[in-house]
Amino acid sequence: MADIKRHILTVQVDNEAGVLARVVGLFSARGYNIESLTVAETDAAQHTSRITIVTSGTPAVVEQIEAQLRRLVPVHGVVNWTSAKGGIEREMALVKLDGGKRDAALKAAEPFKARALETGGKTLVFEIMDAPGQIDAFIAAMRPLGLLDVSRTGVAAISRDADAV
């Protein structure tokens, strides 16, 4: 098997009805993998949205994914941050603990720069914003400390260069 790698794709689309269904439907119809997906309108005046998809596949499969995405009528452009390099990726997560090991948890969270949110005492909820790998590590660290629930946003990505998508 050729090397399967993780890729982050940014898809700029017209924010019209059904556009997300088209993108997601393409992935399921052709058997591609979606690890995470984020979408929101980024330019209200132009009605354009940015979809960020984390996927994995061999170079040939990822080349096909990009080409298939470009075929969709409402797609303006596709950028692969993994091949374009220089991209910044961030994800936000809310992580809830039962509060039984409150002090240990607060201490363990410090190096991750996770912020404890007010919950009224019973439970403990952290907010963390970081690269996805760091969030994985944080969740792993919280697991023995009474982890109850996790909500992650999926990845948003942008380039360091001067250009836009």
Partner: peptide, 8 residues
């Protein structure tokens, strides 16, 4: 004419 056909 369809770029996605190349190398598919």
């Amino acid at each position: 004419i369809d770029a996605s056909q190349i190398n598919k």
